[in-house]
Design a protein around this nucleic acid. Sequence first.
DNA 1: CACCATGTTCCTTG
DNA 2: CCAAGGAACATGGT
Length: 286
Amino acid sequence: MSAMPELPEVEVLVRHLSPLLKGRTVRGVEVRRAKVIAPTSARELKRKLTGATFTGLTRRGKYLLFQLRTRGGRGTVLVTGHLGMTGRMYLQSSSRVFPKHAAVVLNFGRHDLIYEDQRYFGRFTLGDDILERLGPEPFSREFSAEHLAEALKGSRQAVKVRLLDQRLVAGIGNIYASEILFRAGISPRRAAGRLKIAEVRRLWRAVRGVLAEAIAHGSTVPLNFEDGKRRDGIFYYGRAPGAADYYEERLRVYDRAGKPCFKCGAGVKRVEQAARSTYFCPKCQR
DNA sequence: CACCATGTTCCTTG
DNA sequence: CCAAGGAACATGGT
């Protein structure tokens, strides 16, 4: 399976890129796919970024937030990035030959920041307006068990589908939604508003636990974005670049239809919810 | 060759 | 009006 960036993957990437970008000044901006910067125009992006210096990179949900200082040092520039399903961002030595699906390239002189995206579902836009639509960060104080209970209350929607709503809590995607419900021992098909208090608490703990473990694991895998082959070693599986046979399964249920549940041995099931795959153990998850 | 995969936004239906 | 579901986006893998 290839890599789909959800909160943990973006967090690991941000930790990796942040120190590499800090202090670098943009010398050139190449937009190869206007779609990913819309509604920003290429002209505007170039004008704002050229000569600006990176001061910080943070994460909000699955979004990356780039912060820069303008040439004179007076103003600030914000750029919001999203990796969609197939986006990658990495720094490499400058080259006139860009990767096939390079969408935006920032040149720093001897190095380039490449944003490539096979399907161009991601984004790289000026401003941070989009972040206002997001609910709380899962590790923030604001995301409490009470907040979760309140957000689920009265909803007849399946709890799995609710977890994907970025206004409820930011950063959970289709893969970790299944993983979280498996850990919580709750069926993805349960109506969100029907969960008992104890179940909501278990779910809340599982959200933090699953995401935190994924970040911790991803942080142990050395990143190597310049080997030209696998650029997704950090995602979901721990596979260190150059160590082809090091393979550690991290996912407990996702993509395991028909295989035995790690807890009880029963067969993992796949169902479709809101046109997305959901995996769960019908015995462990009620 | 037909179908499936991920995330987000937008549109339609109930 | 809101909830829920599905399509569209683009590409490659099976």
